[in-house]
């Protein structure tokens, strides 16, 4: 409700203005207007305030007094709109803060650091296109110098992707203790994902296990964009072999294990489709062109190679990478 002092202030500004018509009063009115907005004073209250202020300043002709009834009715409509906008604004702020919480929670699902092993460099770049990402990766400690590595892309973005990601993460965590082979891991994940997500959602994943003593990488693919293997001796890039149904696509899916032995200076490049979906205007980068860009980063450390390629693709897409982007580089030294 309008307080007495506020009403007095209004009357004062109005009186001074009517006698002097100065800029000062207009400025005063502006400030008062801002204060009114901050106090959520409705338009119809202001109409009423003005009518009462006029009464204090002198004789108000009957037709002017009556005319306020019309103005008040109109202002009531504006007032309703004003209140509903305010309530939307509040809800919007509430959602923004919920999304910020979800983003923070999601960040906590991704590893905060990469594992360290002798004779092996690991580089990672993972960037979300929107606040909440559909890309997931993880390193899982295993026995005897081995570690598990998952890289996945969850369909869609936003909340459903974030919720699905936490399911995948916890499933990997609990299955991880059993040190399953990559094929068995994907087999179990497929059943878990298939039972728990919307029929139109799916997850593509590459799961592998790296033996840091033998420098042997055993992996299996579930509908995931193939990565690359760089053979230093030949100076060539090769597509990683292997196929298998995306997780959640079909309940009876079998996965096969592929095995690669890394020689010194060989590089494994694992990625999500945000890397291969890089778009230059309406034109998509072909895998051969990606190799061409990768070729220029050969010789750098794993992290520099990952950073270097990301910067190249960012430039190509004119700083507008549409999808979540994740690349993991493993380099035997």
């Amino acid at each position: 409700m309008v307080t007495r002092s506020f009403q007095e202030e209004y009357v004062k500004i109005l009186r001074d203005y009517l006698s002097a018509q100065g800029e000062d009063q207009l400025y005063g009115a502006q400030q008062l207007g801002k204060w009114m907005l901050s106090q959520d004073i409705s338009p119809e209250e202001i109409t009423d305030l003005h009518a009462r202020a006029l009464e204090q300043l002198g004789e108000v002709p009957e037709f002017v007094r009556s005319s306020f009834s019309i103005l008040t009715e109109i202002m009531i409509e504006y007032g309703n709109e004003h209140r509903s906008v305010n309530s939307w604004r509040n809800r919007h702020q509430q959602m923004e803060s919920e999304i910020a919480v979800a983003k923070a929670m999601q960040q906590s699902l991704l590893p905060s650091e990469v594992p360290v092993y002798p004779e092996l460099e690991i580089g990672v770049v993972s960037i979300a296109a929107k606040q909440i990402s559909g890309d997931y990766y993880d390193f899982i400690e295993q026995s005897e110098g081995r570690f598990g590595l998952a890289i996945a892309d969850i369909t869609g973005k936003g909340m459903p992707a974030a919720m699905c990601m936490s399911m995948v993460k916890y499933a990997i965590d609990s299955l991880g203790q059993m040190e399953l082979g990559p094929d068995e891991m994907l087999h179990h994940l497929n059943r878990i994902v298939g039972r728990n997500i919307d029929p139109s959602m799916f997850v593509t994943m590459m799961f592998g296990s790296y033996d840091s003593k033998e420098h042997c990488f055993r992996y299996a693919m579930a509908g995931h964009e193939p990565g690359f293997l760089y053979r230093s001796a030949e100076g060539e890039f090769y597509d990683l072999e292997g196929r298998g149904n995306a997780l959640g696509l079909h309940p009876n899916s079998a996965y096969e294990v592929q095995e690669i032995h890394l020689e010194i200076n060989d590089v494994l490049i694992l990625l999500t489709d945000g890397v291969t979906e890089c778009k230059n205007n309406r034109y998509y980068l072909q895998r051969e062109e990606l190799v061409h860009h990768l070729q220029k980063e050969v010789g750098e450390s794993a992290q520099k190679m990952a950073n270097g390629l990301y910067n190249r693709l960012l430039l190509l897409s004119q700083f507008d990478l549409l999808d979540d982007y994740t690349m993991i580089v493993l380099r035997r030294t």
């Binding site: 892309d153 869609g156 919307d198 029929p199 139109s200 959602m201 799916f202 979906e277 998509y284």
Partner: peptide, 30 residues
């Protein structure tokens, strides 16, 4: 994009459940 692929996966599952056949024609190479 993958959201589109997801739709076809969802339709495929629905068709299997309802015993209907589902056929896709003329896919672009991508």
């Amino acid at each position: 994009d993958s959201t589109g692929i997801g739709i076809f996966i969802g339709i495929m599952k629905e068709c299997i459940q309802r015993n209907r056949t589902f056929e896709v024609h003329k896919l672009s190479p991508r």
